[in-house]
C-alpha cells in the first residue's frame, strides 16, 4: 500500500510501522505492555513490602538477646492489649477525634462564608489562601509552631502583654489538657495538629456547601424557621457528608503521624512514635509491625462508617 497522498509525514521505518499497527490491532497485548511496568513496580516493590511487614508482625522478638527470630507467634498482637500499649492507642485515638471535631468547627464558618457570601474574586482568594498552607511544607509548618509555642515565643509574649498569663497557667494545670509549658502540653500538640490538618477539612466542606441550593435555605426561612433552625434542620444534614469526608483526612492523618508528637507535647507515646522507637532504637520490628496494623484497622473501620454517611459521594 502506498501512503503518498497522506497529509502527515509517516514513519518511514517499516519495522516501526508494523509494530505500531500490531499494537493498535492487538488491543490486549498493548494493554498488557502498558500495564506491566507500573504493575511490576506496585505489585513487587510496594505490595511486596507491605506483605513483608505484615509477615514480620508474626515473628518472635527475644527481649533478652534483643534479637528477632523467625518463629511465628501471635504474641505481638496480644501485646497490643497490654495496659501500656492500649493506653497509647487510646491516647492517639482521642487526639484524632478531638482534632477532627475542632477542625470541623473552625472549617465550617470559613467554608460557609466563602461559598455563600464571598464575591467571585473573594472566593478565588479564599481558595488559594486555603490551598497554599495545605501544600506548604509539613516540617516547615511544624518548625514554625515549635518557635511560636516556645517560652520566648510570640504566643507567650502576646499572652503576657494581655495580662492573661495567670489564666494560661490555670489552663495548663488542667489534667488532660495541660503540661509545664504550652510546647509540652497536650493543648499545644492539639493546636499544631488542628492547624496542620485544617485545610484538609475546609475544602470538602466547601465542595459540599457548593451543592446546597440557596433557595432551600430561603424556603426554610420563608416557612418561619429561625437561622439556627435552618442550620440544624436543613443546612447541616445536607453538608454532613462533606464534613465526614473531611474528617477522614484529619482522623487518619492524626492517627499515623509521628513527627508532631515527637516535637510538641508531653512525653507519652503515640502510635506513630511507638512504631518509630520500636523499629529504630529497640529493634523490635515484629511489635512495630503489629502496631502499624492498628491505624490500618481503625482507618478501615472509620472508612466503613464514613461510607455509610455518604462521605464518598461528597469527595
Amino acid at each position: 500500500m502506498q501512503y503518498a497522498t497522506s497529509l502527515l509525514p509517516t514513519t518511514s521505518n517499516p519495522v516501526l510501522r508494523w509494530l505500531s499497527n500490531t499494537l493498535y490491532r492487538k488491543n490486549n497485548l498493548f494493554l498488557f505492555l502498558l500495564l506491566t511496568p507500573p504493575l511490576l513496580w506496585f505489585g513487587v516493590v510496594y505490595l511486596g513490602s507491605l506483605f513483608a511487614l505484615l509477615w514480620q508482625s508474626f515473628y518472635t522478638f527475644d527481649s533478652f538477646s534483643m534479637s528477632v527470630s523467625n518463629d511465628l507467634t501471635l504474641d505481638n498482637y496480644r501485646a497490643l492489649f497490654d495496659a501500656t500499649n492500649l493506653d497509647i492507642i487510646l491516647r492517639t485515638l482521642s487526639m484524632a477525634i478531638t482534632v477532627t471535631l475542632a477542625c470541623a468547627c473552625i472549617a465550617f464558618p470559613i467554608a460557609y462564608y466563602m461559598t455563600r457570601y464571598g464575591s467571585r474574586a473573594e472566593r478565588g482568594f479564599f481558595y488559594i489562601a486555603v490551598m497554599l498552607p495545605m501544600w506548604a511544607s509539613y516540617i516547615v509548618k511544624t518548625y514554625a509552631w515549635t518557635v511560636i509555642l516556645s517560652q520566648e515565643g510570640i504566643l507567650y509574649w502576646g499572652i503576657n502583654h494581655l495580662g492573661l498569663s495567670s489564666a494560661l497557667n490555670h489552663v495548663l494545670q488542667l489534667p488532660a489538657v495541660g503540661g509545664n509549658t504550652l510546647a509540652t502540653s497536650n493543648l499545644g500538640r492539639f493546636m499544631v495538629f488542628t492547624y496542620i490538618w485544617l485545610p484538609f477539612m475546609i475544602l470538602p466542606i466547601q465542595a459540599a456547601l457548593e451543592r446546597v441550593p440557596t433557595n432551600l435555605l430561603q424556603a426554610s426561612a420563608d416557612l418561619g424557621a429561625r437561622p439556627a433552625q435552618t442550620f440544624r434542620k436543613v443546612l447541616f444534614p445536607l453538608v454532613f457528608p462533606g464534613v465526614v469526608a473531611g474528617s477522614i483526612f484529619t482522623f487518619s492523618l492524626t492517627l499515623g503521624d509521628y513527627i508532631i508528637p515527637q516535637l510538641i507535647g508531653p512525653s507519652g507515646l503515640f502510635i506513630g512514635t511507638m512504631v518509630y522507637t520500636m523499629q529504630g532504637s529497640i529493634g523490635n520490628m515484629p511489635l512495630a509491625a503489629a502496631f502499624t496494623v492498628v491505624p490500618i484497622v481503625l482507618i478501615f473501620i472509620y472508612l466503613a462508617l464514613a461510607k455509610r454517611a455518604g462521605a464518598f459521594d461528597a469527595l
Binding site: S49, A52, L53, G256, Q279, T292
Partner: peptide
Amino acid sequence: LPIALPGIITGIALLSA
C-alpha cells in the same frame, strides 16, 4: 494506596523489605 495509608506504614514497609 501509598498515599491513602499513613506515611509511616509505607515507610516502615519499604524499610523492612
